[in-house]
């Protein structure tokens, strides 16, 4: 009888001591953390894509909570919507940022840019570009081995087997910038999606002189400067034989697109032009 009693007593005392120890440890070693971090994290997409510049979503949430304002804080995956909600939680004004999308600045399809050699090493852009200029005459263009597609965590960019070029799926792209970082040729630019998803950009990064660029690829920007003259808003600059359209100044009038002799200026998602009936 006593055996049972002592056993119970011993267990009780041990339990009480352990509880006291735990209670003390919980107070002593308590990590003070902003409770809002959990709240903000729950609003974030949880993709840990790194597009915000932080290591992951929790780090971004912590950065938001410790920052004085949401200026420069942007979750590209969640977009303006998520940022507004975070702003509401933290009582701060979310900066109004235009939604962006990845744009591939190369139009050198298999037909526009014929191959003059064959790379038989590891099919990887970083490996190929560390060894030589590439399979075509253009040393600036897309290598087509798909480092960008492999880097995307959303499946938003894939290599089109017919053109050999990467294509961005506007529904899946979150403009996190992983593909832009992975591209050894720096072809991918994050540009504003534009009103109604209308965009104009120069789909080329070839800085060679016109004749050289044209020889390598029929879709190359040859640096003729016609677009620069045509643009009424000074949105286009020409540097090193390559035109660049500033998305902030561009009014999407499409005059440059019409003037471009090689079709290097691409217009996306515009309604088809009305053809005049003769």
């Amino acid at each position: 009888m006593y055996t049972v009693l002592y056993t119970l007593l011993l267990l009780l005392v041990t339990g009480a001591l352990a509880a006291l120890l735990l209670a003390w440890a919980a107070k002593k070693f308590r990590v003070e953390e902003d409770p809002r971090i959990d709240e903000v994290e729950s609003l974030l997409p949880g993709a840990n894509c790194g597009g915000c510049g932080q290591a992951g979503c929790r780090q971004f949430a912590a950065a938001c909570c410790s920052a004085g304002s949401l200026e420069g804080m942007q979750c590209p995956t969640g977009g303006a919507d998520v940022m507004k909600r975070i702003g509401a939680v933290l009582g701060m004004e979310a900066a109004d940022v235009q939604p962006k999308i990845a744009v591939v600045r190369c139009a050198g399809t298999c037909s526009a840019r014929p191959k003059n050699n064959q790379f038989d090493g590891l099919r990887n852009c970083a490996v190929a570009s560390s060894l030589y200029a590439g399979e075509t005459g253009c040393a600036f263009g897309c290598l087509g081995f798909g480092d960008c597609a492999a880097a995307c965590s959303f499946g938003g960019i894939t290599i089109n087997p017919h053109t050999g070029l990467p294509e961005v799926n506007p529904d899946l792209c979150t403009a996190c910038g992983s593909c832009a970082k992975a591209c050894p040729k720096h072809l991918i630019e994050l540009r504003p999606r534009g009103p109604k998803d209308h965009r104009l950009y120069v789909a080329c990064t070839n800085r060679e002189k016109g004749a050289e660029a044209r020889k390598a690829c029929t879709a190359a920007c040859i640096g003729c400067g016609k677009c620069v003259k045509e643009c009424a808003f000074e949105a286009i600059t020409l540097q090193d034989n390559l035109a660049y359209i500033d998305p902030d100044k561009c009014r999407l009038c499409r005059k440059c697109e019409a003037a471009c002799p090689t079709g290097a200026i691409h217009a996306v998602n515009f309604p088809p032009k009305k053809t005049e009936q003769a």
């Binding site: 090493g121 590891l122 990887n124 970083a126 490996v127 560390s130």
Partner: peptide, 13 residues
């Protein structure tokens, strides 16, 4: 396997 291709990439980085 393209061992050297991968190693060369790692070494450069």
């Amino acid at each position: 396997r393209p061992l050297l291709d991968c190693i060369r990439l790692g070494k450069a980085t």
